[in-house]
Design a protein around this nucleic acid. Structure first.
Length: 204
DNA sequence: GTCAAGATTAGT
DNA sequence: CTAATCTTGACG
C-alpha cells in the first residue's frame, strides 16, 4: 500500500492539482477486486469562471459533489450510457474538479479485460468512460471521499503517489469534447505515453 | 411540460 | 461518420 495524500493537496487550483495528479496511481477496490492504473491524462474544470464546467450555473442534484470540497470523487453519467470520474478540488463551494481521462493499466488487468469485454490492453483505460468501466466506477461511488480509504468498506477508490513526473514531460492542450471555453489549455497529459486518449492538438 | 444537447464510445 | 441511450438544464 502506498502513502495517503493530504487533504491540502486537493485544496488548490484545479489546474495545479491536475498537473500534480499525473503519475499518481488511481486505486479501485470494488466487489473485492483490485484494479489500478497510473494517471496519464486529466482535464481541469473550474466552476463560475469556466463555462465548460458542469458547475458553471450553480449547484444542482447532479453536480452537488463538485461543491463539497477537495478530495471527493465526482461521478456523472454522460450520453445516457457512460460514466466519467473526477477528483473534486478547491474549498467547499468552489465547484472545481479534475476529470480523469486516461490511465496506464497497472494491477488487475485481467479484471479490466473482463469488465471491458476486450483483450487489447491499450483500449482498457485510454478514455474517461473506458477507465470507469475498467475500474467499475459508477454513479454509486459519487461523493465518495478519496481520503477515507477504509479496509472495512466494501468498495473504495483512492489516489496515491506513484511516479514523480518532470514538468518537461507534461503537455498542456485544449480540452476534448466541449463546445465552450474551447481554447483554454487545461488538458494535461504525459508526453509519449501510449495510453493518452488522443494526441494533443492545438487550434491553428 | 417539452426538447435539444451532452466533459463518449464502438462500429461502419 | 453515426447510432446508441437517457439525464439534465433551459425555456415557456
Amino acid at each position: 500500500m502506498g502513502t495517503l495524500l493530504e487533504r491540502s493537496f486537493f485544496h488548490r487550483r484545479a489546474t495545479t492539482v491536475a498537473g500534480g495528479l499525473l503519475g499518481m496511481k488511481l486505486v479501485s477496490r470494488v466487489d473485492g477486486l483490485l484494479t489500478t492504473g497510473m494517471i496519464v491524462e486529466v482535464e481541469a474544470y473550474c466552476g463560475a469562471e469556466d463555462a465548460a464546467a458542469h458547475s458553471f450555473r450553480g449547484e444542482t442534484a447532479r453536480n452537488r459533489t463538485m461543491f463539497q470540497g477537495g478530495g471527493l470523487l465526482y461521478v456523472y453519467l454522460i450520453y445516457g450510457m457512460h460514466y466519467c470520474a473526477n477528483v473534486v478540488t478547491g474549498k467547499p463551494g468552489s465547484g472545481c474538479a479534475v476529470l480523469i481521462r486516461a490511465l496506464e493499466p497497472l494491477d488487475g488487468i485481467e479484471t479490466m479485460r473482463a469488465r471491458r469485454g476486450l483483450e487489447e490492453t491499450k483500449l482498457l483505460t485510454n478514455g474517461p468512460a473506458r477507465l470507469c468501466q475498467a475500474l467499475a466506477i459508477d454513479r454509486q461511488l459519487d461523493g465518495l471521499d478519496l481520503l477515507a480509504a477504509s479496509a472495512k468498506k466494501h468498495s473504495h477508490i483512492v489516489i496515491e503517489p506513484y511516479r514523480t513526473i518532470e514538468s518537461k514531460l507534461i503537455e498542456r492542450s485544449p480540452r476534448i469534447g466541449i463546445s465552450r471555453e474551447v481554447d483554454r489549455p487545461w488538458r494535461f497529459s504525459l508526453r509519449h505515453n501510449p495510453f493518452v486518449s488522443r494526441a494533443p492538438k492545438f487550434k491553428r
